[in-house]
């Protein structure tokens, strides 16, 4: 297990070096992977963010806030819950589950068919030509999809407010009172790094798959589990650091 984590770190290092060192043959693969992952993810992400935003921080928190007659605070709560945590989480989970697994399955199948070995023998570096474009594409896409997830997550909150027959004015008022630019860039940076974790884990697991079709299945399964764990662990460290370095965002404003 430790060895695998070490190998993934090593792969991260080699990917970063390969990405910046010329030549740059990965342009078209980058565009291809970006569009491929976007096509796969946009709809699942739309459904999950609205549903999740509506249910968890939306309905449940609204039920709780109604007790105090403070439903207007739902907007402020959405800054804390949705922008900082839930939207990035749902974004990362959908990206890992949909695009990440596709990457592992694709690279795993190529590994099993010895295509990756063939590439290397033909003098093509699989890291530069396969890992780097996936790494960059997934980072960019997860970061961009975060904004998409924020919008639809907050839309879930709006739905919850409407369902409670409350006016939307107070929702937006408390929302914008609490929202800081730190929240936005923190969220986007965090998800961009989630994308990096997903890409490295999924590429690593695909490229080291062994044992035929069954091995590819196993690799996909492990990739999802490790990517989730990596995201959870990194999120903990990131949130702690962000709160510690930006104490102003811990103050809740009326």
């Amino acid at each position: 297990m430790l060895e695998e984590v070490g190998n993934m770190m090593l792969l991260t290092g080699r990917t970063l070096v390969s990405a910046v060192r010329p030549p740059y043959p990965y342009g078209s693969e980058f565009v291809g992977q970006f569009l491929f992952a976007m096509r796969l993810c946009w709809f699942p992400l739309l459904v999950s963010t609205i549903a999740f935003g509506y249910e968890a921080p939306g309905l449940q928190a609204a039920n709780f806030l109604v007790l105090f007659g403070a439903l207007d605070r739902l907007g402020g709560f959405f800054v804390l819950a949705s922008i900082r945590e839930f939207a990035p989480f749902v974004d990362a989970i959908v990206l890992a589950g949909v695009a990440g697994t596709a990457i592992t399955a694709d690279l795993g199948a190529r590994k099993i068919r010895e295509e990756l070995d063939a590439l290397e023998v033909l003098g093509v570096d699989p890291i530069k030509n396969l890992v780097v474009p996936r790494f960059l594409a997934l980072m960019l896409l997860t970061g961009l999809f975060d904004i998409y997830a924020l919008i639809f997550g907050v839309f879930g909150g709006i739905l919850a407010t409407v369902v409670n027959h409350a006016p939307l004015g107070p929702f937006f008022a408390t929302f914008f009172n609490n929202a800081e630019t730190t929240d936005l860039w923190g969220s986007v940076v965090k998800t961009t790094l989630f994308g990096a974790i997903i890409a490295i884990v999924c590429c690593y697991k695909g490229m080291t798959a062994s044992g035929g079709a069954e091995g590819v299945g196993r690799a996909v399964n492990q990739a999802v589990v490790i990517a989730f764990l990596g995201i959870f662990a990194f999120n903990y460290a990131f949130t702690q650091t962000l709160l510690a370095t930006h104490p102003d965002i811990t103050t809740i404003i009326k």
Binding site: R113, E114, E115, V121, V124
Partner: peptide, 30 residues
């Protein structure tokens, strides 16, 4: 590695390319 030609057990052709592009690949690359 350019000194070597290697025939893998199942051919190890690139699944995303047709036969011509597969065979042309090393030439285009090198």
């Amino acid at each position: 590695r350019k000194k070597f030609g290697l025939l893998f057990q199942d051919g190890a052709l690139f699944g995303s390319m047709n036969l011509f592009d597969n065979v042309a690949f090393p030439l285009r690359q090198h």
